[in-house]
Write a protein that binds this DNA or RNA. Structure first.
Lengths: 219, 219
DNA sequence: GCCGGAGCGGCAACAACCTGCCATCGCCGC
DNA sequence: GCGGCGATGGCAGGTTGTTGCCGCTCCGGC
């Protein structure tokens, strides 16, 4: 593994950390996109990095994170986000678009998550200037179009309450009419809930929503 | 754990096996309903039971199994079923209804699968005559309405071929019109495929189908 | 009491989906 | 060749889901 290469593929978070931990610890501009809390979790939890971060004052380092909206449907995950934000002074935003898991350090190094093989996720570590700029630009666009955590959180606060029941009914194959009455709602309102749910899941069809909901363990 | 009780709750397959392995080994009429191959798999694989079964001649013991149709969408699982049947001379049928996982031994003892807690599934072991008769009667009804494995397998043979692509398109939220043309099919035929798929998954709505498909790891 | 905003739920128009029907076509077996 | 069989895909008519619109009610502020 030569350090001079512009693109390196590493396997597993451990290897990734070995390569990048020191960079993360010293970075002053961290941008991050993720679909769930698990992905970079170990990164943050593991020893020296968290250490290094704690030493800094807020303001020393700019941390921006974009998460998928579906994450907020899980109360536990939602809490995790808020805690994460408060602890590291990170800015957290929410998008309903599909995002590839990404880390950008100081606009100079990019880590892209690849697919999982043999239980280990592979990562592309990129230092090539043009590519990094391109990815950064994409991230900036996503960042601009994303919604501040607080704002989004308020918006779906009550969705989250009703979500379990709605998902339950949907996954039983109950018709809207019946489901609405079961919940003591009008059909229009029930469908509003379903639409919001699908929006939060980033799903364009109910089938897709079903898949996503199951992926997130919400059903 | 007193042996005189009519209903006993046991936790985990290990405990279940300790209680019932000797009965299974000597039973001459085994009826079984399951949603996947995993459930009673360990039971069959583990030592003495499999041993005991191998010793018998086909004809000595009548083994009937009912599985859910969704299982056949997974080629690997479908193979597993056929192998299982050939090896033990079991009769295998397929139903598209929801079934609770059940074993009935010689019409005298019933095992009902319960929910999973702390990683272990609980089982109700029942010997009470009336209950056993009731459950047996239910099983017989399910058995009669179920379809012979071969017949069902032929029926969905080509569905299984197309299923991955259809599921892929569905899970991308692609509209039927587009999806059909992508596959070089008419909309009518595409929808026919989707309907068959949903039937095989035992789903009454596309949302439900999405959930099931994800559960089975088909998407 | 009055106002404004937010949520609800009926209505309606439209899009999407589901299904029965049937003409058509290719593929056998005769 | 011919008739039967199964798959196809267009069409039609029905059901279900999606969305904008609007009047209604409830509430908090004034």
């Amino acid at each position: 593994m030569q350090t001079g290469e512009v693109v390196t593929i590493v396997h597993g978070e451990r290897e990734l950390m070995e390569r990048t931990a020191h960079l993360m610890a010293s970075a002053t501009d961290v941008a991050c996109a993720a679909n769930d809390l698990a992905t970079w979790a170990r990164a943050q939890a593991s020893g020296e990095l968290a250490e290094a971060m704690r030493i800094r004052r807020p303001g020393d380092v700019r941390i921006r994170k974009v998460y998928r909206s579906a994450l907020l449907l899980d109360p536990v995950a939602a809490q995790g986000l808020a805690r994460d934000r408060d602890r590291h002074g990170a800015q957290v935003r929410i998008t309903s678009d599909e995002i590839n898991e990404t880390i950008i350090l100081d606009r100079r190094l990019v880590v892209l998550a690849g697919d999982v093989r043999a239980g280990q996720r592979s990562y592309s570590v990129i230092t090539q200037r043009e590519t990094v700029q391109g990815v950064t630009s994409l991230f900036e666009a996503a960042w601009r179009s994303a919604t501040e955590l607080d704002v989004y959180d308020n918006r779906i606060a009550e969705i989250r309450q009703l979500a379990p029941q709605v998902l339950d009914l949907l996954s039983q194959g109950v018709k809207d009419e019946t489901a609405a009455r079961t919940l003591g709602l009008g059909v229009r309102t029930y469908r509003r809930r379903v639409a919001e749910l699908m929006d939060a899941l980033g799903a364009g069809s109910r089938f897709q929503a079903g898949v996503r909901a199951r992926e997130l363990g919400l059903v």
